[in-house]
Amino acid sequence: MTELWNWRIDGGTPVEVYPALAEALGRVVMPLAVADPVRLPAYAVVCDVWEAPGVYGTVVDCYGVPERLPELPALAALARVLGRNCLMRDDTLDAGRHLLVAPDGTIRPVHFDVADTDDGEVLSHHRLCTVADARCRGWSQCHRSRWAPDSIAPALAAA
Rank of each mutant, 00 (worst) to 15 (best):
P31N: 06
E16F: 03
L40A: 13
L25H: 03
E16Y: 05
V38C: 00
V49E: 04
D48W: 07
R27P: 07
W7V: 07
A24Q: 02
V49R: 10
W7G: 06
Y18R: 11
P14M: 07
E23H: 05
A44F: 09
P37W: 08
P41C: 07
P31H: 07
V29Q: 06
L25C: 05
N6C: 02
G11T: 01
A35M: 11
A20S: 12
V17N: 03
Y18S: 13
Y18L: 06
V29D: 11
L40F: 03
A33S: 13
V34A: 15
P19Q: 06
V28A: 09
Y43G: 02
E16G: 14
P19T: 04
A44L: 12
V29E: 10
A33W: 03
Y43A: 09
V49P: 11
V17M: 01
A24D: 11
R39S: 14
E23S: 10
V17A: 02
V28F: 03
A33T: 07
P31L: 06
A24L: 12
G11K: 00
I9H: 05
V38N: 05
G11Y: 04
V34F: 13
R39T: 15
V15D: 10
P14R: 06
W7T: 11
P37E: 13
D48T: 04
V29L: 07
G11V: 01
L40K: 15
A42L: 09
A42Y: 01
N6H: 13
A22W: 04
V45F: 10
A33K: 05
D48A: 13
L25A: 12
L40C: 14
P41Y: 07
V29F: 04
L25K: 03
P41G: 08
P14Q: 06
V45D: 06
L25W: 11
G26D: 12
Y43C: 01
V17W: 02
C47R: 07
L40N: 11
D10S: 12
W5S: 04
I9S: 10
A33G: 06
G12H: 04
I9K: 05
V15A: 14
C47L: 07
V15C: 04
M30E: 15
R8Y: 04
A35I: 15
V34M: 11
V49M: 08
V29P: 13
Y18W: 06
R27M: 10
M30P: 00
P31K: 04
A20D: 04
Y43V: 03
I9N: 08
V28P: 00
V45N: 10
R39A: 15
D36E: 12
D10E: 13
A33F: 00
N6F: 10
L4V: 12
A20V: 03
A22T: 12
E23K: 14
V38G: 05
V28R: 14
N6R: 15
P19C: 01
A42G: 02
R39Q: 13
Y43T: 07
V17D: 01
P37S: 10
W7M: 06
W7L: 14
R27H: 14
M30V: 15
L25D: 05
E16L: 02
G26I: 09
V15Q: 15
A35D: 13
G12K: 02
L40G: 00
I9G: 01
P41V: 10
A24W: 07
W5I: 12
R27D: 08
A20K: 00
V29W: 09
G11E: 04
V28N: 00
P31I: 08
V28W: 00
A44Y: 08
V17T: 10
Y18T: 01
P14I: 09
